[in-house]
Design a protein around this nucleic acid. Structure first.
Lengths: 139, 139
DNA sequence: GTAACTGCAAAATATTTGCATCCTT
DNA sequence: AAGGATGCAAATATTTTGCAGTTAC
């Protein structure tokens, strides 16, 4: 696991620091999306609030994490899959936000359906965000 | 037009005030989505920043406007269609954000495709946001 | 007249920037 | 040693809240 984080940073020409390793770890543990605030809480006192902002920003730029649009417009981030590289995100999967427990899932196996656009519109990126009740809360 | 705004407010038991009428007018003119900031600029000095926050909040609650999730997590609002009522939004259409001119379109005729969720997940709301180049910028 | 709405001030929250210091390579 | 990363302080920006005054009904 540690090794994996290490190679992610190396691959992107980022120096290996404690905060970056820790934040990657949090994403891996979360197995889904995290808000800036989640990270702040879970890393209490370990590093500065500003460092979190800067780390998230760097990770987005490098294609290590991506943002997830949400209907309530909170800012969420999740780990990208391998196909993502700097400047080109390819997150062709559906995000699911549970209205009950508020956890965000990346549904890897639900590919975004293609959308038919009116003539003259060129598609670049598609985000599909479903909200509802998740498996755990539905039980 | 004025009449229409009036009936929207009346229908929702909201008193008819200058700011509410003006904000409805701005949405109608925009023919798409507006951010809080857009409204503030376009209504320069006419009313308080706080009034805009409160008006938008009220409109969302009543089902007059809805929020649009965006990849960069800015907060966008657009007029709801008739099917929306208080507590139940029904915005089953695709939103398109132009990467070039930054205008947001509600594509009424592109219905959100249905998404197949894993077992145990219950769907409530689906948001589809496409970004790319719009008709005007493509010309 | 009463309840709802607005403006202003201020609090609370969130984000960005500059710079000195420390750490990674 | 050099460049990049972090922490701290402070500037900005955003959103919320309280309350007094005003307006709609």
């Amino acid at each position: 696991m540690q090794t994996e984080f290490l190679s992610i940073l190396k691959k992107n020409n980022l120096s290996v620091t404690e905060s970056r390793m820790k934040i990657l770890e949090l994403f891996a543990q979360a197995n889904g999306a995290l808000a800036h605030n989640d990270i702040e809480k879970k890393s209490k006192l370990q590093f500065d609030r500003v460092t979190i902002y800067r780390t998230l920003q760097t990770f987005v730029e490098k294609g290590i994490i991506h943002t997830i649009p949400t209907a309530d417009n909170s800012v969420l981030y999740a780990l990208c899959k391998d196909e993502c590289t700097q400047g080109h995100h390819n997150d062709n999967h559906v995000h699911f936000i549970c209205d009950s427990c508020n956890v965000t899932y990346c549904l890897e196996h639900s590919n975004s359906p293609s959308v038919i656009l009116p003539k003259g519109f060129k598609q670049n990126r598609v985000d599909v965000v479903v909200s509802g009740i998740c498996l755990k809360c539905n039980a």
